[in-house]
Write a protein that binds this DNA or RNA. Structure first.
Lengths: 247, 247
DNA sequence: TGTTGATCTACTGTCGACAAGAGGCTCCCG
DNA sequence: CGGGAGCCTCTTGTCGACAGTAGATCAACA
């Protein structure tokens, strides 16, 4: 992940200097960025199987770019933890391991309550609207039995909280986890017998956040995160210690 | 930073599986890796001033490599937060901001106690020796008035703790902070009137860790980290709000 | 005189070709 | 028949050259 502490000079977030014209920034679409996007979705939707090697020449030819920007795209994905690069051997689609997920969970338990605490002051107005919207999205996804959409909304729910914390590092951290969580969840959805459970879970979380009781929030996050991680590995041997890594 | 969850097959850190032969792994010295190393020291020792642009062609020629591996080296440093890359504009030596340091501190306060907790079981034998050794190094550096050495040992002290936690993500996180902390500290050393204070501070921390009292440890880390961050910015206007954070 | 527009330069982004390392295969030798 | 040295091929790593962009300089114009 790229935990860059210094943002590019142009990436003003919400500042308006002259007449209040804040027409949101246009972010430059760089080739490596778009390529990384294509590969990311391919990995997340299973087109590129975990463990498979990503041959540069092939992919570059497929996408109609040269190897230089492709290699940079692979680096981006490596930062996100979706790809593992090994010198002189190549780049491989990451295999999510139960251990890796547990590690992420252990950090989330300690940091997400903090993120919520920081986000508190902004949880009333438009911030709250954003969160509620993700819940609605999640519900709609669950209604339709649309796994991908439900997961997307699930990720958005948490991401919005990190965004509202206005803590750059925290948000970067979440971003570095998001792809992996998404990969894990979509591969492991069978552990969610009913998608509506996910929705209920998060509605409950939001209710508790509303109380503003930090203790209770910490407890709930603990339960919440614990549940979504440790509930799974038992059943999904496929993702266990699979790191003989390579192969 | 590269928070890769899946490590390359060979990078077992301190594990000895067969007869205790830990001859430490020879890590493949890749060109981008060595180049990144050269640039890293140049940045940390001030040869490359914060904010200055790193022109690819120029540096590549200086080091006798082509731009391809150099660009990758810059990406590595960007991951570490020592360099900021901006599309179509170039790579610049990062400027540490008080805000960035405060963000790191806020996360350390929440994670370092956890790292210590995890490291506990390994804090008796050889693990402890390692820590003590960094303290000795720190002391020697302070005796000689050797700032760089003191800082190195200081970083090692904390790094060893994260290593002993045997929590991959935590260690990765520390690594992603280390360079920036080092950059900050070496630029801001005037806030340490006496290097021996640093040593005393860490000896005290170790003593408290020895008690095994997690509450006390958390309190101490809070004090410790708080002190080493918030003590500084007041005096060092140079690093304050330097983030045109926009603008 | 302030502002707009073109031009110019220096740099980054991209390309295709070449070099070098890694792994598998065959063939030779004990 | 087993082991090992040497090739052979595929892939990644590196290179030099070209294309495109950002910012500065400067001239034309209202």
């Amino acid at each position: 992940m790229t935990l860059s502490p210094n943002r590019p000079p142009g990436s003003t977030v919400g500042r308006r200097e002259d007449g209040d014209i804040s027409l949101g920034r246009i972010h430059q679409r760089t080739t490596p960025g778009t390529v990384a996007g294509v590969l990311r979705t391919a990995i997340l939707d299973g087109t590129l199987a975990p463990g498979s090697q990503l041959r540069e020449a092939h992919i570059a030819a497929d996408l109609g770019v040269s190897r230089a920007p492709l290699r940079e795209a692979l680096s981006i994905l490596a930062d996100e933890g979706l790809v593992v690069k090994i010198a002189y051997k190549g780049a491989f689609v990451a295999e999510v391991s139960a251990k890796g997920m547990a590690e992420i969970a252990s950090l989330r338990k300690r940091l997400e309550p903090y993120a919520i605490e920081l986000a508190m002051p902004r949880l009333s107005g438009s911030g709250r609207t954003k969160i509620v919207r993700t819940l609605q999205d999640m519900a709609r996804g669950a209604d339709d039995g649309d796994l991908a959409r439900t997961i997307d909304a699930h990720m958005s729910f948490h991401r919005v909280i990190y965004e509202l914390s206005e803590h750059g590092l925290l948000l970067d951290l979440w971003r570095s986890w998001e792809s992996q969580l998404q990969l894990f969840l979509s591969a492991d959805h069978q552990s969610f017998p009913d998608l509506h459970d996910v929705v209920a879970e998060h509605e409950r979380l939001l209710t508790i956040i509303d109380t503003g009781d930090l203790e209770a929030i910490t407890r709930e996050i603990d339960r919440h995160v614990h549940g979504s991680i440790d509930a799974a590995p038992a059943g999904s041997a496929a993702f266990d210690g699979s790191q003989p890594s390579n192969a």
